[in-house]
Each structure stands twice: as C-alpha cells, then as structure tokens.
C-alpha cells in the first residue's frame, strides 16, 4: 500500500475473527495510533469462560483505551470495545451499543455476522469491517451487507491466516474491497482520517 494513501472516514471499525485470530490481534494492537478517530469494536469467537482474560490481554497489549462493554454503553471514538462472550453485540441509533442473548448464529455468540449487519444498518458507508483468520463461515454474510450499504470490507490474506477458511469464504462470496496481510491491515487502520 502507498505511504500517502488516505482512507475515508469511518465511525466504526469492526474486526471479526475466530480460530487463529487472537495472535493477529495481538500483533495489530500495539501498533495502532493512540488517537483513533473511530470506535474500534472487536468481535472474537471464544469460550464463554475466557471473558476477563481476553479483556485483560487486549488491554495489556493495546495503546488504545479499552472500555468494558455493558448493555447501552456509548460508543466513543478512540476506544476499543470487545464483544462479551455469550452476547451478540448490536448498534443502536445515537451511538449506543446494545446486547442480545438470543440464539447463536453460525454456532456463535457473539456472531460476527450479527455485529456487521447491525453496524451497516446504523452507520451505512461509515463502517469498515475486517475479517481475520477462522474456521467458520461467520462474517461473510455480514460483509455482504456492509458492502451493500456502502461500507468497506477487508479480508485477511488467507496465505497469512493460520486458519484460512473464514477469509477464503468471505473472498469467495463477499468480494472484499481489500485483501491484506496483517502489516497492511495495520497500515490501513492507521491511515484512516
């Protein structure tokens, strides 16, 4: 990617991942600009018991402030929000997050599709969806919807993914705007105005 590339404005950047995505996230987090001009939402599949550990891990690695997600918290640019286990994370008007404990989607709760779709409904073209490594089809449908609503989607380059199924599936069915290596994803996020 060119050094000078300036990426459009986003209100929300959502990063979704499953198997093999945690180590990618750990690479991305320390290298992010401290003052992110958007709210950064992370939706990872994991076991329901690993909640606190994941939050602590991300907080430790991250230069950006991590806010605990509870129902109806306000999304504020410059903060990281992590979808809690056993809840779907949804977006409401007026920049609130709401949670939903309904049925799993794609065997997952939180489901990446659910958060992608909900973000697209509220933020339209101001959404950037990034899909990392994983062994599940979650994320593809949500990416399609982000794209339909005018947002931007990125898949991790499957060559660089520990478990390539998830980005491959998205590349096949959602035609991402960009297919990027981890380093390129970091550059992309940091060049958002």
């Amino acid at each position: 990617m060119e050094e000078t590339k300036v990426v459009g404005k986003f209100d929300v950047v959502i990063l979704g991942g499953s198997a093999g995505s945690l180590q990618v996230l750990m690479k991305i987090l320390p290298l992010l600009n401290v003052q992110l001009p958007f709210a950064f939402v992370i939706v990872l599949h994991r076991k329901s018991t690993e909640d606190k550990t994941l939050e602590q891990l991300i907080d430790l690695k991250s230069t950006v402030n991590v806010r605990e997600v509870e129902d109806k918290v306000l999304l504020v640019p410059g903060n990281i929000y992590i979808a809690p286990s056993d809840y779907h994370l949804l977006f409401e008007k007026d920049n609130y997050i709401s949670l939903d404990a309904s049925e799993k989607v794609n065997y997952s709760r939180p489901s990446i599709d659910v958060s992608f779709e909900s973000a697209a409904e509220i933020y339209k073209s101001k959404v950037l969806g990034i899909l990392l490594s994983g062994a599940n089809a979650d994320g593809t449908k949500g990416m399609q919807i982000i794209k339909e609503m005018g947002g931007t989607i990125i898949a991790q380059d499957p060559e660089t993914a520990e478990t390539p199924f998830m980005p491959l599936n998205a590349i096949k069915f959602a035609k991402p705007d960009y297919i990027l290596t981890v380093e390129e994803i970091i550059d992309f996020i940091n060049s958002i105005q």
């Binding site: 949804l90 977006f91 409401e92 008007k93 709401s98 939903d100 309904s102 659910v114 909900s118």
Partner: peptide
C-alpha cells in the same frame, strides 16, 4: 424495546 434487537426478532 431496543430497536436493533427488536428488528432482528
């Protein structure tokens, strides 16, 4: 009701 969730339901 929360709109996002209600809409999904």
């Amino acid at each position: 009701y929360s709109r996002a969730s209600l809409k999904r339901r």
